[in-house]
Nucleic acid binder design. Sequence first.
DNA 1: GTGGATTTGTTTATTGGTTGAATTATTTGG
DNA 2: CCAAATAATTCAACCAATAAACAAATCCAC
Lengths: 335, 335
Amino acid sequence: MAAVTGLTRATVSALVDDLISGGLLTEVDPPPRTGAGRPAVGLALTAAGPAGLGLELNVDYLAACVVDLTGAVRQRFVEHADQRPSGAPDALAALGALAARARLAAEADGLIVAGAALAVPGLVTGDGLVRVAPNLGWQDVDAPALLRATPELADLPVTVDNEANLAALGELRVTGGDPTFLYVSGEIGIGAGLVLGGDLYRGVRGWSGEIGHLTVFPDGRPCRCGANGCLEQYAGQEALPGDEPLAARALGIALAAVVNLLDVPVIVLGGAYVPYFARLREGIEAELSRRVLTSGLAPVSLRAAALGADAAMRGAADTVIRAVRDDPAAWLRRS
Amino acid sequence: MAAVTGLTRATVSALVDDLISGGLLTEVDPPPRTGAGRPAVGLALTAAGPAGLGLELNVDYLAACVVDLTGAVRQRFVEHADQRPSGAPDALAALGALAARARLAAEADGLIVAGAALAVPGLVTGDGLVRVAPNLGWQDVDAPALLRATPELADLPVTVDNEANLAALGELRVTGGDPTFLYVSGEIGIGAGLVLGGDLYRGVRGWSGEIGHLTVFPDGRPCRCGANGCLEQYAGQEALPGDEPLAARALGIALAAVVNLLDVPVIVLGGAYVPYFARLREGIEAELSRRVLTSGLAPVSLRAAALGADAAMRGAADTVIRAVRDDPAAWLRRS
DNA sequence: GTGGATTTGTTTATTGGTTGAATTATTTGG
DNA sequence: CCAAATAATTCAACCAATAAACAAATCCAC
């Protein structure tokens, strides 16, 4: 560890001691030997320390999970039900009940839930206000306040973010490899989460990733947003089943724009695109190689998401874990 | 300063002393009084310390300037000549001669040139290799090596970057206000520089900003890149004069894509677009308000660049200055 | 086996940069 | 002219990291 961080061994020892006594690290069996010398002590993130509560409220389901420091899913609850008729207060109360069950089960298991993060399909401001969630029929909903109305969650810090953004983070955690990629989530609408150098790019106001409304055919089909020819009208969950070649062409045109603009080397298709991936791939790649200026220098890599419908809630839980991991001293002060 | 940084006054004094004795700060007249108490000592970046050499090699001109720590342009040389027939070695030798004149004049004036940065219209890798510069006819040119062949520049660290990227940085320096914006440079081709939170986003391989090849009309005019309907074919310097309404529509469609994707609140049009701005504005804004999903929540601000043709070389010089400013201790160790 | 080489981890004194409290300096306002 | 206010410096104390020596635990060669 000293070699990796550039710190001296003495410093690393002191810091590791703090993390062990603070319950963030545990000593485990030593790693396999590599040659002569005293064997190193194995270190691992503890499975019994702080954990993150990941929540998702989507059009047709509620979900809650608890993920520990090692990234393992320790609790998982999903409830399928159309949330559109409920209205925001009832929907968030139902999610609160689910979240409370997940939290209590996790804490009975020795975990300490450090915070919660909520994924919603809509535009969210930095303080958790859901400005618009078209497919839920929401407008200006104070989601953290409604969620904390559940007594068992009243003491938890709650953040809210767009569903595609958090799904992208969930994917990042799993893939490990590429720290820069675009995650495209095909649901009723089409959202995207942009991960640049391992960090989610949210935009100045948190409204980035609205790839569903990129113009593909300027005089094309009218969209419910008021414009014409939006990607969503050709590659959304409703347009997709009938006409995969057109959907692939539209996706390819939109994704080529992203790559030309941002030099993103990897694109991950998630949500409803996963089962269609084999049928879409060739058509998308044809447009990418034709329209991306640098495709001759380095091809764009296209793949299906590794996580399924859990991606957003996993990513949500991960933001909580990540906050602890990025500033463990703050967590130690808190305990 | 202590209040702003959160450091104690004692610490600030010590650091400021170092910067003054190192020749980066000077004491100036005190700021206007605000009430009782001992007046504060005024501090300003010194005009006689390190400076940046900003260079630009473009299709029809060469340019060099020296900018001091305060941001003032202390030397400026421009030479108009078509660079396409010359070839890379001759063009860079001519630019080297111009740069040497600028450097010598600046150093006679008490400045110390800390480094050079070069703007070129092409795709550049992280180590300064120009992979492709289509409008110059260049391919795989080691620009730093060719530039340092000029004896007076042999000792300077040289970086190379895309012209639109550096122009965006130049504009950032001047505007001061918005730390997140897209700069669109209309030349023979169309390039863009993306400034996110005060930092230039270059992409994984440094190939971001190729907005000229965003697809606007998928079955439209053939482009020299091999695709159809690229923005460049409708809003490039050659297509522009005839048909401003079409150009504005094409630009609006492409810029709406950028805003939907990245939530960028400000767009700056530079280069050849500056004289056309009044004629393009209305058409672009119409498309933006129609096609940007969040245009109802917060309108996109559109304006013409403040710097003219000097933007790229000013931005280039600024990268050198910025390196000193961001790590003054490294500069002090060097001297 | 035994001893040297090798690697890991701890101990110790030292360093460098920051803090906090007290002190000095310089102005305004009554 | 004095009190209040603000600015800047001095100096002892502290903290985190360093460097170097030392102790511990293993492999390997003989």
